[in-house]
Nucleic acid binder design. Sequence first.
DNA 1: CCATTGACTTAAG
DNA 2: CCTTAAGCCAATG
Length: 115
Amino acid sequence: MRISDKNKDFFDLVYEVVKLIPFGRVTSYGAIANYLGATRSSRLVGWAMNASHATKQIPAHRVVNRIGLLTGKMHFSSPTEMEELLIAEGIEIVDNKIVNFDRVFWSPSKEIPID
DNA sequence: CCATTGACTTAAG
DNA sequence: CCTTAAGCCAATG
């Protein structure tokens, strides 16, 4: 299915993008919002992640804020689950922040091949 | 229906 | 990078 399909809800589009994040890579709420054409609506991406737990299985731990801070770790099953998952993917984290953020950052608008 | 809140971002200082 | 202020929009009371 094409990501550029606008037939789905904003939440579903967010899920599609998040599911495409490669192993060991992360992206930001704003990058996803920007890719979906809603640069200023990055809060909705976070809201979508919150809802994702109940609806689908999504690697929400690969989505952090614009500076690589794990702002949403408290919304997981365990307060340390997000950090543990990222570390398991080879991502360094210090003080709830991704150290090598510039190296593991994955931009959807630049790295998703256009259909 | 109005007010507040929130896994956010940008701009300006 | 930090702080303020403002914008954004769904959910909640």
